[in-house]
Simulated assay, not measured.
Amino acid sequence: MLLAFCAIVTACDQPAAVAPVPDYVTLPVPANFPEPLAQPAHNKATAQGILLGKTLFFDPTLSANGEVSCATCHQPDKAFSDGQSLSEAGVSGKPLRRHAPALINLAWMDGLFWDGGARNLESLSFAPLRHPDEMGQDIAGLVARMQQHPTYPAMFKAAFGTDSVTAAALGRALAQFQRTLISANSRYDRYVRQEPNGALSDHELQGLYLFRQHCSSCHATDLFTDNRYHNNGLDASFPGSDEDLYFGYGRISRKPEDIGKYKTPTLRNIALTAPYMHDGRFKTLPDVLDHYSHGVKWSETLAPALQQHQKPGIPLTETEKEKLIAFLHTLTDAGFIRAHTPAP
């Protein structure tokens, strides 16, 4: 009996395995923003999860050739875009079929990718990870290799309390980091919040007036997107032989009335994220405004906002275009760029 009691006492003296306690993080909501989408109950932001997601985001070993990271096509100094029309930086070297979108204020984005092909941030990363022209990765093989990594298993345990690396946890960590990419400190933001260093010139204020008159129906609220899909007159026809390239949201909804519609991108940091449109066809902001002024092509699904004049589009004078561009430059958030650009 004494031996048994001593054994119990000795066992009690041993430190029990204690699951790591996550440090939950409350993401800031800028005063001029609506409330973000609710975080999934199974993936509340923690300091450990965000750190893991950030580490994964910048790690090229997640790709099949060990040379392509998420940041290859989503570069912080370009507001998490890449400056290319159709990137050839993936593992195959072939041009992609979509322009890499800027990653900004994703915590507020309902529907992801240009055609809405991803429903939430937790699933977003698996498409580029698997795509043969992007990161070309076999997810099961990647998870197995990460399990043998010198630091990742401990980071996953700290973030999620699991002794093993899993694909689901990989997606959740990347989602947590991407929810932190909040841009809300441009000169425009300081202007609307009446904060110091928020003055806009007369030229910029006139551009803001024009923007609200002509552009804000789609680039709505201070998120500068309505989170919806529109046909903005880039093409007059949408060949069914290549619906992945032309159908846009119609590929996802399977409704004819959605063919040719693409997600309204945010205009935040727009001066840093050229080229523009889902296929990167316009190199500059003047090119974009020239399109809306006299290049819009009619089709049955053309956005109603572009059918309110004698011809499709938005008639703009050269002076009005200059004022609009001046305003758009006030949406640049230099602090957002500095905060996320790795030190040299």
Score class of each variant (00 low, 15 high):
E322N: 13
H291C: 03
K261H: 05
E322L: 13
R268V: 01
P275E: 07
S299H: 15
T301A: 10
G250T: 00
S293R: 15
I270F: 00
F247W: 15
K297P: 05
D279I: 08
P265S: 05
K261I: 00
P304I: 06
N269T: 03
G313L: 10
G248S: 08
L328I: 05
I325R: 06
P304Q: 09
L302R: 12
R281K: 03
S293L: 12
Y276Q: 02
K321L: 11
H291T: 05
L331G: 06
L267S: 01
G250A: 00
E320C: 07
G280A: 00
R251L: 11
D258H: 02
G260A: 01
V288L: 09
L306D: 06
F282V: 00
T319M: 09
A271D: 09
T301Q: 13
S299P: 12
K261A: 09
Y262D: 00
E322I: 04
H309M: 03
A303K: 05
K297R: 13
D287S: 11
Q308F: 06
I314W: 00
R254V: 01
R281A: 10
D279N: 11
K297A: 10
H291A: 06
T266Q: 03
E322M: 09
N269A: 06
L272C: 01
P304G: 02
F282A: 05
R251N: 08
H294K: 14
L328P: 10
A274R: 03
Y246M: 11
P312M: 13
I325W: 08
R254C: 00
A326N: 10
L302I: 10
K255S: 02
A303V: 11
D290L: 07
H329T: 12
I252G: 00
T264Y: 03
K261D: 04
L331F: 09
L331M: 10
L306K: 07
E322G: 12
Y246C: 06
A305D: 12
R281I: 02
S299D: 15
